[in-house]
Structure formats: structure tokens, C-alpha cells
Amino acid sequence: MEESPLHPFELHNYVPISLGGLDISINKAVIMMWVVVGLISVLMVMAGSARRLVPGKLQSLAEMMVDFIRGIILDTMGKDGMRFFPLIATLFLFILFCNLIGLIPGSYTVTSQIVVTAVFACVVYGLSLVMGFLLHGAKFLGILVPPGTPGWLLPLMVPIELISQLARPISLAVRLFANMTAGHVILGVLFGLAISGGVLIGWLPFAFTIAMNGLEVGIAFIQAYIFTVLTCVYLGDAFHLHGHDDHAH
């Protein structure tokens, strides 16, 4: 099998559409996003339709998820953060389902495209900037000066803080993209070894493939969780402006 392990990430247009020079063709990633959105909607509507006092299986799963996301928000942002619940829950569920569905052989991991993760990261970071300037005005620039910095250190600390601020959306985007891509490349390489190894030795990489798939399920959860937590942390920073560091630990 002479196939590049990066081959599964290539996208081919099924329905080429061009709108005023803009390429909005429909490809596998777009279809997978529709599938994910549809699946989440159907699951959540079904789970919410019964509204029993003693919840069934689906309802308790949905309640667990909502409670989990609520816990993250309350831990990182406090009560003010609950107004972002719809955004954060949507992000978490979308990323989680993209990651998990991508692990089904033959499907596609949307989050392994850096375009997708970068758009998420930019939206989150942009929102935190807009919120910060709306709430604090020009005082929000004080986020570049850590509390308790002596004056003579300012020319050094402000550039460092500026870079560390600018690194936030990049680390957010790269982390999710790199973890998903790397995981799938490893799975692809191991499975390629299993096929080219034959029965005699091929069972070894095949066993590793299965083990890695199990680990990848964990990674799928963790990455969705980390993305959500960091979203909350960044939005919370815009709210509290240094005030948060005191009771964080």
C-alpha cells in the first residue's frame, strides 16, 4: 500500500459551487459538519422532549452534559459567565461530536482542518476582546500590565504580555488541529503497517491501532474539554481584568 498517511485529510469537491469568485463547494468536511449539527440537534431535541422528573437514559445524558458545561463555566468565570452558556455549550458539543465521529473509520474529522479550528479560536478571542473593551473601555489595555509590575520593567513586560496575548488564539487553534491530525496520522501509519505486515507480524501493529483508537477517544474528550475551558478562561479574563487571579488557586 503506497499511500501517504496525510492522504485522508485531502478534500475533494463533490459539488463545486463558486459564488462571486468565492469557493463554497460542498466537500466531505462540509457534509460531516452537517451530519454533526444534525446529530446534535436531533439528540438534544429528543432528550428534551420528554421532560420527565425521573429522566430516561437520553435525558440524563443530556442533563449530565449540560451540568458538566455549567460546572466549567461556574469554575472559570463565575455567575457572570452563564450568559455565554449557549455559545460555550455549542462549541463544546460541536467539537466533541466532530472529534468522536471522526474516529469512526471512513468518516472525516472536521477538526483536523486548521481552517475550522482557527475560525473557532478567532471568534472566541475576538469576542473576548470586544467584551473587554465594551466593559472596561480603554482600561482594558491594562491587561498588558501584570499587577505589581515595577515601572522600570514596563518596557520589557508590555511586549511580553502583548505576545502572550496574541499567542492565545494561535495556541487554541493549533492545539486542537495538531492533536486531531497527529492522532489520525498515527492511526493511519499503524494500520498501514498492519496491512503490509501480513498475518505473521501484522497483528502487532493492528493491536496497537486498536489501543491507539481507545486513547484517541480519550483525546477527543480532552481536546473538546480544553477548548471549552480555555474559551471560558479567556472570556473570564475580559470580565474580571486581573481580579480573577486572586481566587483561582
Partner: peptide, 10 residues
């Protein structure tokens, strides 16, 4: 990733 991203930006 945090270390890497800051290096890329800087």
C-alpha cells in the same frame, strides 16, 4: 502548545 504558540508569534 502554549510554549510553541508564543514562540511562533514572537
Amino acid at each position: 502548545t502554549e510554549l510553541l504558540a508564543a514562540l511562533i508569534v514572537g
